[in-house]
Amino acid sequence: MLDRRLLCFTGKGGVGKSTMAAAAALLAVQHGKRVLVVEVDAKGALPALLGHAPVGYRPETVAPGVRAMAMDTEQSLREYLRLNLRVPVVGRIGPLARAFDFVATAAPGVKEILTIGKILWEVRAAIDGTADHDLVIVDAAATGHVVSQLGAPQSIRELADVGPLRSQTEWMIELLSDPAITELNVVTTPEEMPVAETIELVARVRSELSVPLGSVIVNRVLPELFTRADEAAFEAMRAPAASEWIAARAGAGTAEVLDGARLAVELRRARAEHLDALRAAVDLPLLYVPYQFTATPGLRMTTVIAEALGEELGL
């Protein structure tokens, strides 16, 4: 995974995309890479996961070896026009934002191409060795939107008859399709909707895009603490004599302890079902990251998750 130049992380909202992107960045640094992390749906959450305040469009160092930037399509448009078309006048035609909003509505794919274009620009710079990073990690759009984002160069090629954008799409598609360079990873949790969306997304990526898929990262996997035999024992422990014996030794009642065990068993069972469905439908490597009972989101938790991810990857 870490030998690529572009790692994208997608998944249903709330499953931990940003956390996995941040953890991958920490892993890459441990393996001697300099990383640029791009937050696409900028909520400012990603830098916080590396213990840093939110960042803007201009990359900032957020952790040793890691720079981060928040995507801003308007800024990307300015940069593109300045670098490629030499159109400084655009800055002077008044509120660019309003006009840009209109174009983005009018011409589908414009916002997406500006996002992926900027990302691939940075990837190319990494390959050429002209950048301050070796690897670009993207906290990409959610499952519902990522296909149109990564597919933007393809759509633009079909849509735009002429124009500089069309000629630009060739190298973009080439980078995005190269398994030695690009890898799209899908983050999920062992729950119904995230699993359903993952299965659907993998199928869509395969049929609509040429982007190579990496792994499915299953986040918040519950530990298997108890066996079926244990469950029978737990029910027996609800008997008055047993609970008195345990209370005498532990100093606390058994009701809560057994309720907690029952929840753990039931949740684990429901999730195992969804995991089975995922395994049956998706032939990608699955990486399992355990549920974090004791940590709150932040650098410490990201470090723990990076470690778990590294183990799963055999690093």
Binding site: L81, L85, V87, V89, V90, R92, I93, G94, A99, V103, A106, A107, V110, I156, L159, A160, D161, V162, G163, P164, L165, R166
Partner: peptide, 22 residues
């Protein structure tokens, strides 16, 4: 002039088909 510049820029970026459709 400003709007002309703007529309031309758009056309240069995304092609004239998009503008015609709009």
């Amino acid at each position: 002039v400003a709007v002309q510049t703007f529309l031309r820029t758009v056309a240069r970026v995304v092609g004239t088909q998009v503008i015609d459709d709009v």
